[in-house]
Design a protein around this nucleic acid. Structure first.
Length: 271
DNA sequence: ACTGGCTCCTGAGGGC
DNA sequence: TGCCCTCAGGAGCCAG
């Protein structure tokens, strides 16, 4: 399930193969993703050169002179650069074929992902316009998060998973960050003091940066663009460890449902 | 303005 | 070995 670190790993893996390349063709085998793959992608992207491969939150942007392809991996999507003639698998829905004979191939069994096209600046696209700051940028600091939490009755976990508040923090890293910060996930966001948000911001940054360094988290099937798994799952302290001893205090890690999401925490270490 | 619930989809994993 | 059932999960969308 790609969160920000997995998307960033993917971006770093594909960017060197894409930048400067000219698109020859877009092959859509299954247009029914989260939203229909737009016809204009197939008519307007071919002929263009990829100028840059960027990431905004969990969105990947393939930028050209005339527009940008916007990609989202949903929860089961992955991107690989394949050689011409590589036979597509059952869930290989879209190929962006380059003049050099290689293709960027999107595989997404659950089809929660998306491939879109915009000829305006990507940042003004409906899906990107209202996104919160990048968690690894200077804009994401304790003052900002504290201010964003005032008056909010949602749990602090839901707050940091809200992409309008901060992008890229998914279910796994939310639990991990709150454990590191010593904050209970279910605490109403508006009742947490500024000083504790200081710890939380530091924890989110630390967890995400460490996950990127480890190549991401592979729970089921995430691999980078070269097919390598991530190693951060070995560093997960609480996620998926309900009933196991807490790595800090030895108490039992508890799991609960929070906003329809599986949540893990240590009742002794997190308050 | 907020909030919680629903929705898309398929593979994995458990029970028997 | 195989079948059926349940569930995970990003995040936009909508109703209250």
């Amino acid at each position: 399930m790609p969160e920000l670190p997995e998307v960033e790993i993917t971006r770093r893996g594909i960017a060197p193969h894409l930048e400067g390349q000219r698109v020859r063709e877009v092959v859509v085998r299954q247009p029914h993703l989260r939203w229909p793959v737009p016809a204009r992608l197939r008519s307007e992207l071919p002929g263009q050169h990829i100028v840059a491969v960027r990431r905004r939150g969990k969105y990947l942007l393939l930028e050209t002179e005339v527009g940008s392809a916007i990609l989202h991996l949903g929860m089961s999507g992955s991107l690989h650069v394949v050689a011409a003639g590589t036979p597509p698998g059952k869930h290989d829905h879209v190929d962006i074929v380059f003049a050099n004979g290689r293709s960027l191939r999107l595989r997404d069994p659950r089809r929660f992902g998306a491939v879109l096209w915009t000829t305006r600046p990507a940042s003004s696209h409906k899906l990107l316009r209202a996104l919160g700051p990048e968690p690894l940028s200077d804009a994401f600091d304790a003052d900002y998060l504290f201010a964003a939490s005032r008056g909010r009755r949602v749990s602090v976990k839901a707050l940091i998973m809200d992409s309008k508040v901060v992008v890229g923090v998914g279910n796994i890293y939310a639990s991990e960050s709150l454990f590191l910060a010593g904050i209970r996930p279910q605490t109403p966001a508006g009742r947490i003091a500024r000083r504790r948000y200081q710890r939380l911001v530091a924890a989110v940054r630390q967890v995400l940066a460490a996950a990127i360094e480890q190549g991401g988290t592979t729970l089921r099937d995430f691999t980078d663009s070269e097919g390598r798994p991530g190693y951060f799952q070995q560093r997960l302290q609480v996620y998926g460890r309900g009933g196991e001893p807490c790595p800090l205090c030895g108490g039992r890690i508890r799991s609960l449902q929070l906003g329809q999401r599986n949540t893990f925490y240590c009742p002794r270490c997190q308050h």
